[in-house]
Design a protein around this nucleic acid. Structure first.
Lengths: 337, 337
DNA sequence: ATTGACGATGAAATCGTTTTCTGTCAGCGT
DNA sequence: ACGCTGACAGAAAACGATTTCATCGTCAAT
């Protein structure tokens, strides 16, 4: 079932059939007979052959590091909705925070001549976008920023978000504020931690100065289990923290679990999550969180990709979206106050 | 950068380069020089050309109806882990419960000559797998069963699960048991509801007989909002139910929200969820749920696909996995007892 | 009526692989 | 020494679309 069969059935040449399907100029009468023949034969064009000839397919890849994290699935919907309005299809690839898996997916995207790639990089250093950009494939980095890659990017203001978060805890009266951040080497981890540190430094001279060292800093893996383990460690310290800034949504769940085990609950211990805790409505008491525009992140990334594809948007561009502190505590403050 | 360039650099023919990359018989010396040339040039084979020639690509598509539902993302991980051990890559497509989007993805899968398709169908009737199966593409239906499609399938025992769930509520002493199920036309909706009805019928003669009509039956959309709305409706009835069997995890979240609004909480009102509520550890008091083997569902589907691809596994096969009732209530029973 | 212009059409080249088919050469048995 | 066998290499034909280029009409203007 090829374009030739349709051509023969309709009594025209393959070229004409192709033109009918691609909006070339064809006499209405002929066009109609081609349509009919195609429908009768149940013809569906071979996208592989088309991609080979055009040197470009019509699907774009979205590579994310954790498909079980609602932040990324929401981002994915943003990408999809934006692509929806074009003729492009989106396929999702889950790198599982594994640079090797990610490498394979990037290789697939390149080999399949994909129309573009949106990637939330598993690593700042090992993620190599060179082969893609060298071949002129439009690439947009979203959420995470790969080191020295000259690609368009969309991210949130992590430093600012972290700073606002920790400042909020300070203002609520907490003094021994811990930070559980993500893996070293991830841009998001580092920036959120830096924001946290900046807020503490700014409060220097007060009791917060004591926390300037690394006693209350933990690096975990951005997953529930990592948050749980890190929080247990912090609780086991001789002088446990009275509040914790958690650098992502899933780790916050682990933190809340660990607190529950120890019989503590917010706001007795301050908990501030970077990123909405999924289905937060079920969590009582409600949590304050730095809200991330995950959907918009995806949508913006897709828009950038489409513009880049069009040839508009010449210089490389980075869009930074603002976070918003969503205060949900009814009565905030440390247990003792 | 094609196979020809590598061939020229290595002083061999393109055919030989191809053989080196595909395990054909080649003199070690030549093979080495090809490897070196390829590495030096940074050659990556064009998968599109390969797919065109081989009439089959090396990626499989997984089409799911809701990427924001942890049940499906867990299933996706199962698929991926199983495929991991082969040379196949998995790409995810989100149909969003929209048969039109699903149709497009199926078309893409066909046109891209994908090595196989695993699909959790958005609809029982409108999902047309014919074009795929006609062309000999291996297809596995997972979770949802498309009507009269002769494909391998993996699903859970929905009827049994629904029956066990409602029986559990009956045994806990609830008498006016409602059921919020999914959209009409989805196999999972229907089967779970049928199980619910079977359990009620079996209890006939008791007060449960009153619930045999449709007063307490609601069809919603398998999403949080649908559950919330349906539960509000039920609560507004002259004689509201004292328990509810909710046919999926997300709707249960909406139900719990609606109950919260009304100042009710389990076990004052019985709530039994079909499928684990995501991050259930945060929900207090804990919920009883019919546990679904989502990961295994995915893994089994991928295994079936791989077997079908190998040519083993001649007759069409359906694997039914068992659900497990996970009781998590400390003190169960209606408010009045 | 002749020429020019323009628009639709088909033939054929092309995209980059895989694979068949044919050839060559070395080694071996007789 | 001759032929046979077998293994490996290369030439060339696929795969199914798009697209260039040439051709053929048709129509209008002079």
């Amino acid at each position: 079932m090829t374009i030739h069969d349709v051509a023969r059935a309709a009594g025209v040449s393959p070229a004409t059939v192709s033109r009918v399907f691609n909006g070339g100029k064809v006499t209405p009468a002929r066009a109609l007979s081609v349509q009919e023949a195609a429908a009768a034969l149940g013809f569906a064009p071979n996208r592989v052959a088309r991609s080979l000839r055009k040197q470009r397919s019509s699907v774009i890849a979205l590579i994310i590091p954790d498909i079980e994290n609602p932040f990324f699935t929401s981002l994915a919907r943003g990408v999809e909705d934006a692509a929806q309005r074009t003729s492009l299809s989106v396929v999702l690839c889950n790198s599982d925070e594994d640079t090797e898996k990610e490498r394979r997916y990037l290789e697939v995207a390149l080999g399949e001549q994909m129309a573009g790639v949106i990637v939330a990089a598993a690593s700042q250093d090992e993620t190599d976008l060179g082969p893609l950009t060298d071949r002129g494939v439009p690439v947009v980095a979203v959420d995470r920023r790969p080191r020295d890659a000259e690609v368009d990017a969309v991210r949130v203001d992590n430093h600012h978000g972290g700073e606002v978060a920790t400042r909020h805890l300070l203002q609520a009266g907490y003094r021994r504020i811990a930070c559980i951040t993500g893996p070293e080497g991830a841009s998001t981890s580092e920036e959120r931690l830096a924001g946290h540190r900046a807020a503490l430094s700014a409060a220097q001279g007060s009791a917060a100065a004591a926390a300037a060292d690394n006693t209350y800093i933990r690096h975990a893996d951005f997953r529930v289990e990592g948050g749980r383990v890190a929080m247990r460690e912090l609780l086991a310290l001789p002088e446990p923290p009275d509040a914790v800034f958690v650098a992502n949504n899933l780790m916050t769940i682990g933190v809340l679990d660990a607190l529950g085990e120890a019989g503590r609950t917010p706001p007795g211990v301050g908990v501030l999550s970077f990123g909405d805790v999924p289905w937060a409505s079920l969590v009582r008491p409600s949590l304050t969180a730095v809200e991330l525009p995950s959907y918009e992140l995806g949508r913006t990334a897709a828009d950038l990709l489409l513009q880049r594809r069009d040839g508009s948007l010449s210089p490389v561009q980075t869009v930074v979206l603002r976070t918003k502190l969503q205060v949900r505590e009814s009565t905030a403050g440390p247990a003792g106050s």
